[in-house]
Design a protein around this nucleic acid. Sequence first.
DNA 1: CTCCGGGCATGACAAATGTCAGAAGCCCAC
DNA 2: GTGGGCTTCTGACATTTGTCATGCCCGGAG
Lengths: 206, 206
Amino acid sequence: MTSTRPVRLLLADDEHLIRGALAALLSLEDDLMVVAEAATGPEALAMARAHAPDVAVLDLQMPGADGVKVATSLRAELPGCHVLIVTSHGRPGHLKRALAAGVRGFVPKTVSAQRLAEIIRTVHAGHRYVDPELAADAISAGDSPLTAREAEVLELAADGAPVAEIAERAALSQGTVRNYLSSAASKLGAENRHTAVRLARERGWV
Amino acid sequence: MTSTRPVRLLLADDEHLIRGALAALLSLEDDLMVVAEAATGPEALAMARAHAPDVAVLDLQMPGADGVKVATSLRAELPGCHVLIVTSHGRPGHLKRALAAGVRGFVPKTVSAQRLAEIIRTVHAGHRYVDPELAADAISAGDSPLTAREAEVLELAADGAPVAEIAERAALSQGTVRNYLSSAASKLGAENRHTAVRLARERGWV
DNA sequence: CTCCGGGCATGACAAATGTCAGAAGCCCAC
DNA sequence: GTGGGCTTCTGACATTTGTCATGCCCGGAG
C-alpha cells in the first residue's frame, strides 16, 4: 500500500475507558487517524456531520440511539462514510439488522486492536468484514419466525406488563394480544410469554 | 512520590480489545506495570497465583466467575493483592457485594485511562475508591428488603419458569413458592413476579 | 419463659393467562 | 379470482397466577 493520506476515523462508544484506549492504540498506526469521538448515538451523528470521517467505528449499545440506528442515518447523510460496528454481546439478529442498515463490518470486542486496525483498512477499501463466529451464529439461528405483530406485542411484553397494558399500548383487544403472545410462544418453543421474550432476546429477534 | 519499584498489575477482562488497549495505556505510566492478563474468572485466579500482582483490575462480568467471586478467592489467597473492579453497567447491589468481598475500588468504565491510573495508585497505597455516582446510587437504593428465601425464589423465577418448576428446584411446595413470590413482588412494588425480577435485577438484589 | 419474625405449609378464591375454534377483512401471488 | 397467509376480533374453556387467611415449627430478643 503506497503512502496516501490517512484513513480518518470516528470513534463512538459510551465507555470512555475503551474509547480513549482505542483512540490511542489506533493512532499508533501510521495510516489511521482518529478525527472525532462520541459517547452517545446523537453525538456520534453530530460528530460525523461535522467531520465527515472515512470510517465510523460504532459501539452497538450506546445511550440515545444504538449503533444500527446511527448507521442508518449515516448511510443516508454520508454515503461515503463506511460503518464498522463493534459489540460486546453479539446477538445473531443484531448482525442481520446491521447488515440491512448498510453496515460494512461487524466484529466482537474480543478481537485485538491489531486485528481491528486491519479490519478498518478492509472496510475502508470498500470490502466487507463480518466476524466468522458471529456469522455462523446468525446463519444457524436463521430468520425470525415471528410476524411483525407478534414481534411487536412480544416487545411490549418484555418488561413484564400485564396483557391489559399491552393491549392498550398496542391499540389491540386483549384477546388478540393473548393470541399473538400464545402463537409467538409456541413458535419459539416456549412455555409462556416470558421465556418467549427471553428466547427472542437471545436470538436478537426483538 | 519517590521512584520506587513499579506497581505490578493484573488485568482481567473478556474483551480483548479493551484489555489490550488498557494494558498499552497503563504501561505508558512509569510507575505502573502490567504483569499478567486474563480473559476469564478462573484464568484471572490462576494468573494471580502465578504472578502475585500488587493490584488486580477486574471486569465485573466475565465468563466463568464474576469479578466479585474472583475477588473473594483472591482475598483469601493473596491478602496483599488489592482488587479494583471496573464495570460497564454499575448496579447498586453489585457495589455492595463487591465491598463485602473486600474489594478496594469500584469504578465504571466511563472513567478515562488517566483517571484509572490515579485510582490504581490510590488503591495500591491502601486507600479505597468508589465512584461517587455509583456510591450515591447504592445509598439511595438502600438495602434489599427481601428475605433470603424470597431472593432465592425470585432468582429461580428469573428465566420465566412456571411455579411448578421453581417449586421443584427449590424443594418447596408450590403454595410456598407463590407466597414468597407474592410477598417479594409487593415489597418491590411490582404487579407481578416478572416485573419484580426486573426491578430486583436493576437494583442488583438478585 | 414468652413473644415475635421468618420459614414453611395448606386450602380456597379471584384474577390473569394460555389455548382453541371460528370468522371477517385484506392483500398478494399464482 | 381464488387460495392462503396475516391481522383482527369474539367467546369459551382450562390452567396458571396472585392473594389471603390460617396454622405449625423454630430460634433469638426481651
